[in-house]
Amino acid sequence: MSALVVADKVGAWYGQVVGLSELTLEIAGGLTGLVGPNGAGKSTFLKLVAGEMRPARGSIHVLGFAPFANRDYFRRVGFCPQQEAIWDDMTGLEAVTFLMRLHGYVPAEAKRRANAALDRVGLGDPRSRRIEGYSKGMRQRTKLAQAIAHDPELVIADEPLNGLDPVGRAEIQALFAELGRSGAHVLVSSHVLHEVEALTERIVLFHRGRLLAQGPVGEVRKLLSRHPRRVEIRARDTRRLATALIALEPVQSVRIEPGNRIAVETGDVERFFGELTGIAASGNFGLQSLESRDASLEAVFDYLVG
């Protein structure tokens, strides 16, 4: 299977500011999350993928197309930008219908698709009201609707969960999952790491316009052998347990924290877990829970960007 996105030494600048620098990567089809702090280059990369920007250097191919100003490509892609973007004076239905007309759909078909897409994103009656009266979440849903209304093969969503309440967030996450299951490729960016983590296992990490890491969250973490992994243990007798843990060879540090918790840093997590099992069986420490802090994307990102 060929890659969905192939970027080769791509560079992009905003005047003197570097947007992306010598970015080389391949992204396979399916649902992929783009993660990084603000200014990391996620939006720039997505604009390159969406065909909004021309790379200043290098080349990028998506679905086999060079995206910039490529009419055939645009018909196969839906883009939900981070910006407000939608026109206040139109209703949600008018805006999505208008954008479908720009794709070339005849009026009746454009309206049918707009209604169907607004149904999918859960924008009910408000679709007939002017967008100026919409909440942030409603605007976000309208933008998403215009990105999926023409059944694109690739949906590109830049910070799509911004402004959504928890219920809306869950609904949109379910929508992305459904898009993925139905065969569409989805590229989603977010600076809120757990949002992406809830959506997909496969991530691309950006930092200062460069690719930091790529792959399943767990695998990305495994690459970081030089970083100790953190494990949080809850136990009744933390002092005794900490004393026992510090004696273990794989343990690099032990810190007692409030709430009967112990934070352990280890260079070899599998060996540590093996030895911990022995300790737990031999001593009466009242072990309550064990959690790897590094399982979260947040932790991986913290490691990666220092």
């Binding site: 604009k47 969406a50 909004e52 100003a69 645009f74 892609v77 939608i86 070339g104």
Partner: peptide, 10 residues
């Protein structure tokens, strides 16, 4: 940012 909606279309 409405230009982003226009220019991601034909």
């Amino acid at each position: 940012g409405a230009h982003l909606l226009y220019f991601s279309r034909p």
